[in-house]
Design a binder for these strands. Structure first.
Ligand SMILES: [Zn+2]
Ligand SMILES: [Zn+2]
Ligand SMILES: [Zn+2]
Ligand SMILES: [Zn+2]
Lengths: 136, 136
DNA sequence: GGTGGTTTTGACAATCATTTTCAACAAGCC
DNA sequence: GGCTTGTTGAAAATGATTGTCAAAACCACC
């Protein structure tokens, strides 16, 4: 309590946080906190599960990773570009493609305000079977 | 095992299943299994929580109700029209409006097949603040 | 290259929605 | 009325996520 102000929070650079970030970069599609934790373990990197959860959540809030909740209620994460976008995910192998849908964005806002809604946000994900998985 | 065939499963009519269905009809927006369970309790209808879960899940699979997973991993249900559609949900009061988006549907399929994906499905929900909640 | 005030970590316990279990029960049918 | 089989529900199990809190790591600043 040196200054009177509420300083936002420093955010330190630690081995664990880098490990999580790097580990996430090495993943193809979306991974859950637990999967990433296992992966780091196998790579020799030792990071506590609790820490992986915290790091992913922080990254998510900072907009550095995207997260989505799967049908069975698992939260999965992925390194993403900072601009607003959506995903096309393969149900079999998890391969993920980022997609932008300007048309959808304007449509969403139009529909919402037609109905008197403001402060709009939306979730949109596409699922399917990718080429490799179909031919295999 | 009287016939050699695999008969699909009769599906019986019970007090509990009707109570769940009716209770759901009386709800405005989306409700979770637990909320509905509480509501039934308060109305004097006694239905086990397990049964509420099972009934809702069955109704969902039968296409009689729509379900979606909220950001915090709760599955919520609502009586819905049978055709494919999406929702515009008020973050404050839960009021829900069904919306159809033919344009989005075609867009989704186009984008998916451009990327070699087949067997497409999608999730799309809009969230916002409804008129009453904004003025209140 | 020490010191002190913070932040961060992580093993473990706690939560909490959902599922499983399984013995008692009730629908539909003879 | 009895039988067969799907159904119920209280209690226990599951499993992802979060809370706890003492020990370890960071980061200026001497
Ligand atoms: Zn694939
Ligand atoms: Zn969008
Ligand atoms: Zn509202
Ligand atoms: Zn649609």
């Amino acid at each position: 309590m040196s200054t009177g102000r509420n300083e936002p929070a420093p955010a330190r650079r630690t081995r664990q946080r880098s490990a999580v970030k790097d580990g996430l970069d090495r993943c193809e599609g979306f991974v859950s906190a637990q999967e990433l934790h296992d992966r780091l373990r196998r790579d020799g990197q030792s990071v506590g599960l609790t820490t992986v959860y915290r790091a992913l959540q922080a990254l998510g809030e900072g907009g550095e990773v995207d997260s989505l909740v799967t049908d069975d209620g698992e939260t999965v994460y992925r390194r993403c570009s900072p601009e607003h976008h959506h995903h096309l995910v393969c149900r079999s192998c998890g391969r993920t493609i980022e997609i932008a849908g300007p048309a959808v964005e304007t449509w969403a806002h139009a529909v919402a305000s037609e109905n008197g809604f403001t402060d709009i946000s939306h979730t949109l994900e596409l699922f399917g079977q990718c080429g490799s998985c179909t031919s295999a």
